[in-house]
């Protein structure tokens, strides 16, 4: 069994990201989309939590949402991978189910 978790909220506005991190087991996949992409950036107050999560979970960020917000790959926390919508679809299919932290 494996789960893809999506987070679409800025970690500075809602607790969806922290809830996702604390409710996802090791080896889960986490994809940040929409305002969730702000969670992927270095030097933020939650970067430490993401840094630890990267060690045991696969963390992805949706490229089109990142770019739309004036962010780029150089600003990402190490270990986070960028995917496009095709990659989003692949993640959905590669895991047994999806938990959307709305």
């Amino acid at each position: 069994m494996s789960t893809l978790h999506t987070v679409n909220k800025s970690p500075f506005e809602k607790n969806s990201m922290s809830s996702c991190l604390s409710h996802s087991v090791a080896d889960s996949a986490i994809l940040m989309i929409e305002d969730g992409v702000y969670g992927a950036i270095k030097n933020t107050s939650i970067a430490g939590d993401i840094d630890s999560a990267v060690k045991e979970k696969s963390i992805y960020v949706l490229g089109p949402d990142l770019k739309a917000r004036g962010l780029n790959e150089d600003q990402l926390i190490d270990g986070i991978s960028v995917v496009d919508y095709a990659g989003f679809v692949e993640l959905v299919c590669a895991n047994d189910k999806v938990q959307n932290w709305l």
Partner: peptide, 17 residues
């Protein structure tokens, strides 16, 4: 909200795949 946009782009990508 971006939800409908995201869903649309996801749906299109899934169909393409």
């Amino acid at each position: 909200h971006e939800a409908s946009d995201s869903a649309y782009l996801f749906t299109k990508a899934a169909l393409q795949a």
